[in-house]
Nucleic acid binder design. Structure first.
Lengths: 182, 182
DNA sequence: CGACGCATGTAAGTTGTTACATGATTAG
DNA sequence: CTAATCATGTAACAACTTACATGCGTCG
């Protein structure tokens, strides 16, 4: 489905970027729903360039270091908007190793189970704390709602990530309590 | 990380199965946290066999149709239990195309946004209904809790899947209301 | 006897990860 | 000056999907 393609087009649509910029955005801002390594990004940029969806101008960083600043062509913008407007069927449920292990819970001792669940819980709580810290910094956290700025997209996906994390924590906690009382 | 390998070992550990059985279990019972096509399962079974983790006996179904009934070797059982007991760091957050599109919400019109979110909501509600119907059928739904049977694993992952779906629906609903009132 | 499900496999292609490879710039 | 970060790429491999390919069993 070439999702990476459209993720890149969408980001460049927000403003011209280099491959390195894209890498940082993927692995810092979008990491809660999409990401990619630079080794996947650079070849994809080459491909999009060949397809005529993006162009670049070479910019000098300092004396020698060349970087490629990409922007969308008209065709690129159109391709992105078509993808965005297309209604998709539900994706297959994401894979989850911890849930898989939980499915096999009968093969663990009570101690092992509690140790596994508590470790998972600690990590999830840590992650939630970081997400909530990001939310506090967010301009929209104060109740300003203007849905036609990029910040609104940032905001709703962040809210979704927090809700998802809380639910995972609730599930772990319920399981732990049930197992403890057994 | 060879997760499919351990998923298969875990399922065969519950009882001898054929490749076809595994396919059905993956795509019906485990589908909420792991799955695989038969084209991935058969080569993996071959590999596990070569590694000495599983063996099979050929069984006749009818007059001519041969099927391979797989079971774990001692080494296979050990490999599975070691994997199960190993504590893992949090996986990267699963990718999600709908959240990605939501991130780019500023490039959609209000009508497009509402249409997208409502379509997603309908599908998610449909899915939740199916999960809840499965839960009603489940022996553990009545409150019997015995954590040392395979059914307990089934039960907690199903509960987790329902909680996850409800949260997704809540998120969509909140977004829709916010956008409607804008 | 026809349709659907059982049963097993391979081939080609896409997506994503890990490792290899190189060099410039900037902040302390 | 040196470590971290900026910057761009390729190669090999692993995981996964789609399509190709075949044939038996069972139910109506």
């Amino acid at each position: 489905m070439r999702t990476l393609k459209y993720a890149i087009l969408g980001l460049i649509n927000r403003g011209s970027m280099t491959g390195y910029d894209l890498m940082k955005v993927f692995n810092m801002e979008l990491v809660n729903f999409w990401y990619a390594k630079h080794s996947q990004i650079y070849p994809e940029l080459k491909k999009l360039s060949d397809e005529g969806l993006i162009t670049y101008e070479t910019v000098l960083q300092g004396e020698k270091l060349e970087k490629k600043l990409y922007s969308l062509t008209e065709a690129g913008k159109e391709a992105f908007l078509n993808w965005l407007a297309k209604q998709d069927l539900l994706e297959p449920t994401p894979k989850d190793i911890f849930r898989l292990k939980s499915y096999f819970i009968e093969s663990m001792t009570k101690e092992e189970i509690l140790s596994q669940f508590n470790y998972q819980l600690d990590q999830r709580k840590e992650k939630l704390k970081k997400l909530e810290a990001t939310m506090i910094e967010h301009p929209y956290a104060k109740g300003i709602i203007d849905i036609v700025t990029p910040e609104y997209g940032d905001y709703i996906v962040l809210k979704g990530a927090i809700m998802r994390e809380i639910t995972y924590i609730d599930w772990l906690t319920e399981c732990i309590n049930e197992i403890k009382n057994y």
